[in-house]
Design a protein around this nucleic acid. Sequence first.
DNA 1: CGGCTAAGTAAGCAAGCATTTACATCTTTG
DNA 2: CAAAGATGTAAATGCTTGCTTACTTAGCCG
Lengths: 206, 206
Amino acid sequence: MSGERSAQTARPEEAEPPRRRRNAAQTRQVLLHVARIRFIRDGYAATTVRDIADDAGVNVALINRYFTSKEGLFEACLGMAVSDISRDTENVSLEQITVRMANKITAGTDEARLQDSLMMLLRTSGEERVNGMRREILLAVSQKLAAAGGRPVDDQALLRAQIMLGTALGITLLRSSLHLTPIDSADEQDLIGPLTDVINALLPRG
Amino acid sequence: MSGERSAQTARPEEAEPPRRRRNAAQTRQVLLHVARIRFIRDGYAATTVRDIADDAGVNVALINRYFTSKEGLFEACLGMAVSDISRDTENVSLEQITVRMANKITAGTDEARLQDSLMMLLRTSGEERVNGMRREILLAVSQKLAAAGGRPVDDQALLRAQIMLGTALGITLLRSSLHLTPIDSADEQDLIGPLTDVINALLPRG
DNA sequence: CGGCTAAGTAAGCAAGCATTTACATCTTTG
DNA sequence: CAAAGATGTAAATGCTTGCTTACTTAGCCG
């Protein structure tokens, strides 16, 4: 590669387009990010498009330009959450499951945000389609949990896995939404013990 | 009017005031009842006072007359839920706890409505005062759970009780709000087994 | 009966909502 | 550079919201 592309600050990264002050893709991302936070914290109906636009520092009309409607933006956020959850529940094995679950539940706000994705799952816009998405991903996760034992997944095993899922959901709810103490201030180590007990009680080993 | 009060059907019962087509107390109750359902199903912000008034078959203005505001009506509903939960968690003992929990979770819509009360706890109007109410009752319930073992309640026991509470919350959520199968269609008998295992794993016997 | 108060109603108001339109400005590209 | 499309903005649209006001009617008591 003989010729550099331009005399910009530093060298432009390979797959990184040159910085623009106007950047549709980046604006889209910012909107998604701040909308997610609002939807999780305040719910769909209580969140206004102006709130979101202000948080993002952009004009309200861009929400409709990039996501068609408030509803469209919500579905995009939910889709993100579904992807995150799918990725974070790959290759679940009984050995690591406790540690990983405790880790995900207590992970800081930095990067790992499975908690947020779970809370996003509890939000609804009233549209029937999103309810379908929610049920789908929850069913998939519980099936992965049930299959972790290595035994064939019958209805009873699935029921137990869903109770386990409910536990994870409930803990996350009590922590990040209701801020109940002492569970809200428990760290990873505090949770590993009880979680191990619950998992051993619910998920039969193959 | 010397004789009987009127030629109504049957005789007016003792403690039962004569039926009036206009009855403030009854209207109040109807409003509370239908509002609760709406708040639980649709959330606070997505529920309009006109929805509630229509459900109740009364005029919108009566909501403000009897409850001052939409917010006031919500708080009344939440207060009802708190009372129900307090009453339903009296005298918890480790012996009956599993059966009672399974029973309450699966109880039909007839009378026992602990599920609804729990779901009501998850709703918020944004007012800080209601968040306080929610934390209070959740803490009280988890303390009762922790004390059921008969042992002194240290922080770890409380944490475990709160995880148990989270499980109940999560199961109820997966059932009545998300309608996830097969847990949504599980009956009391189906739940007793797994619940027993979880409770034994979480609540140390004294 | 006749009036008085509690209970309920209809209509409307100001504020806030999501969305659209018409316009301005930045970036790329020929 | 200059045309053109991509990106962002300001303003206004038509609804819907919670709540209030002025009014009607049912129920009670002398």
